[in-house]
Amino acid sequence: MEEFFQQLTNGLAVGGIYALIALGYTMVYGVLKLINFAHGDLFTLGAYLGLSLLTSLGLSGRLGPLAGLLLLALLVMGFVALTGALLERAAYRPLRQSPRLSAVVSALGASIFLQNTIMLLYGARIHVYPQDILPKVAIDIGGLSIPLVRILVFVVSLLLMGALYLFIQRTRLGTAIRAAAIDQAAARLMGINVDQVILIVFLIGPGLGGVAGLLVGLYYGQVNFTMGWVYGLKAFTAAILGGIGNIPGAMVGGLILGVIEAMGAAYISVAWKDAIAFMVLIVILIVRPTGILGERVADKI
């Protein structure tokens, strides 16, 4: 039983990161109906930028660990958000009126481009974050030993998700985003600047992805240029699992995917873990064709 709960916390910690990345997928999808395959590489960019800023500016030394990390996160968020907006302008906006899959291919091209840009700039070798930033303490809760950093990462993910949820539900801009997601033409008629909404979505989504990259770098300590491909696919799966376009869905999907993986590895087979996760996904989609929290949309008639 102790092992079960240990695996549950393992799964939730991994799932928290999936969920954070999945938010970027789901936000962009909600408004543009575009699967942004470059999102995983924006996540990688966040991890690398975080490393560069961390080692070159020495923020935590000057401002103390907490303020330093906060500033670092804001910087990374800003840079990656800017890249995301540029990407939207260059690679997606010209394709907005074309068949949906064209934009998907452009996104795949952007993904290859970004990934190789990172490789050419930083080299192909694995890069390592400094080790002494976060405390290495484990907390004992009822016989379970959970590293403090894992809890921190999880809490930060939850806070960011909560903030985003409130932003979408409670603010004027959030309302505009929701309106544009439902019907762009109608939103335009209601005086909503849809282009601006899309820009904001492409600032927030990649920004969150960048922070997720920073968190992964800080916690796991190791980054390489292909990491976005693995995390991107997992996060996309999570977004679909929860019902793509739906923000609570991305959170739920991410956490569930993490837990399924941990349990599959624990009780069936480690080598088959990913296959098990996909099988569960397929079964869930057969039962609920639009994901766990996805709304059932009636087909156009």
Binding site: P94, L95, Q115, N116
Partner: peptide
């Protein structure tokens, strides 16, 4: 890198 760039360019010009 060039390949990814070429892919984006082709898609943007021939949507």
């Amino acid at each position: 890198w060039v390949f990814g760039l070429a892919m984006m360019i082709m898609m943007v010009f021939r949507t």
